[in-house]
């Protein structure tokens, strides 16, 4: 998928959870991506984060630590 679209999708998830208390928000983003993103998409996200993750929401960075 286009990096732009992936960033957009990940940030949308982050923006939904952003209003929750911080810990819940991080867990929410991580859980959502783990449950609904196919491994190819999670891999792309990780690679993108490896390259600096430009444009990604703060919560996505934190959530990514909990992802595999």
């Amino acid at each position: 998928m286009k990096a732009e679209l992936m960033v957009h999708n990940a940030n949308q998830i982050a923006k939904y959870f952003a209003s929750f208390p911080h810990e819940e928000a991080v867990a929410g983003v991580a859980d959502h991506i783990q449950k609904f993103w196919e491994p190819r998409m999670r891999k792309q996200l990780h690679e993108y984060l490896g390259q600096g993750g430009s444009g990604l929401h703060e919560l996505v960075f934190e959530a990514a630590k909990a992802l595999h």
Binding site: M1, K2, F36, E38, M41
Partner: peptide, 11 residues
């Protein structure tokens, strides 16, 4: 592991 959704299949 979850699979691909329609838009992701197309991606």
């Amino acid at each position: 592991e979850p699979g691909l959704r329609i838009p992701n299949m197309l991606d």
